[in-house]
């Protein structure tokens, strides 16, 4: 149902490394699950509206008033790597 190439594509989108020894078992597990959930593909749902949110919320907006920001040292405290008060990361390629 989901083959290695598809699995690798999806893993790429999810930025999830899959090592060679994980590929076949993962593809098999996902296929089992997908086969089960695929039952919904057979339902006639053409006249049914999708539900993205449950319940009615009318007052969901926020006033444009300033709240206190975090001190920089608090913001950076959990970071794996920091430099010059910023979060240090390997540069994206092609930049």
């Amino acid at each position: 149902m989901i083959d290695r190439d598809e699995l690798l594509h999806v893993a790429r989108l999810a930025r999830l490394a899959l090592h060679e020894d994980e590929l076949d078992s993962t593809a098999a597990e996902l296929s089992t699950i997908l086969e089960h959930v695929a039952a919904i593909k057979e339902l006639d749902l053409d006249d049914v509206e999708p539900t993205a949110h449950i319940g009615d919320v009318s007052d969901s907006l926020r006033d444009d008033s300033v709240a206190t920001s975090l001190p920089v040292e608090v913001a950076l405290a959990p970071a794996p790597a920091v430099r010059d008060d910023g979060f240090l990361v390997p540069s994206p390629q092609g930049e």
Partner: peptide
């Protein structure tokens, strides 16, 4: 990037995929 585990800093993609 901002918190939690980080693995493989050799390049950005490796960091993302191996961390996760």
């Amino acid at each position: 990037v901002r918190y939690g585990l980080r693995r493989d800093e050799s390049n950005l993609d490796a960091m993302y995929t191996e961390t996760r």
